[in-house]
C-alpha cells in the first residue's frame, strides 16, 4: 500500500481512496480550487476501472471552479504541469491510459521558473 500523507488536498473517491496534491502558485489554486485545502468527494462507480483521462475530465467538471485553461489543455494537463503517480513521473506509468488503483497518490505540480 502506498502512503501519501501530505494532506494538502485530500479526496476520497468511491471505490478508490485517492489523494490529490496540487502544488500550484497560490493565485492559481485559488482560482482553480477556491483555495480549499481539503475535499471529500464521491466518484460514481463504473464497471471499468478509472483511467487518468477520465479522471482529468472528472476533475474539470467537479473540482475546477473557473479558468480551466490554467489546468487543462485538450484532454491532458496544460504545458508546464507535471503529473506524478505515486511519486513517479506519469510518463513512466502510461500517462492518460494509466488505470487508477486504490490508495494511489496523484500529484499535480506547476513548474517554477524564478531564481
Amino acid at each position: 500500500m502506498h502512503t501519501c500523507n501530505l494532506g494538502k488536498y485530500q479526496f476520497s473517491i468511491f471505490g478508490y481512496r485517492l489523494i490529490f496534491l496540487f502544488f500550484f502558485n497560490s493565485r492559481a489554486s485559488e482560482l482553480l480550487f477556491d483555495g480549499v485545502k481539503e475535499h471529500q468527494v464521491t466518484l460514481p462507480g463504473q464497471s471499468d476501472p478509472w483511467d487518468m483521462k477520465q479522471l482529468l475530465v472528472w476533475i474539470q467538471r467537479n473540482l475546477l471552479k473557473e479558468r480551466p485553461e490554467l489546468f487543462v489543455q485538450g484532454e491532458s494537463v496544460r504545458p508546464g504541469i507535471l503529473v506524478l503517480i505515486n511519486d513517479a513521473d506519469w510518463e513512466l506509468m502510461g500517462e492518460l491510459d494509466y488505470q487508477l488503483q486504490d490508495q494511489d497518490c496523484i500529484v499535480f505540480i506547476s513548474t517554477l521558473h524564478g531564481g
Partner: peptide
C-alpha cells in the same frame, strides 16, 4: 520534460 512552454499568463515571477 516540458516539450511545450507554459502559457505566459500561468507564469508567476
Amino acid at each position: 520534460l516540458y516539450p511545450a512552454p507554459p502559457p505566459p499568463e500561468t507564469v508567476t515571477n
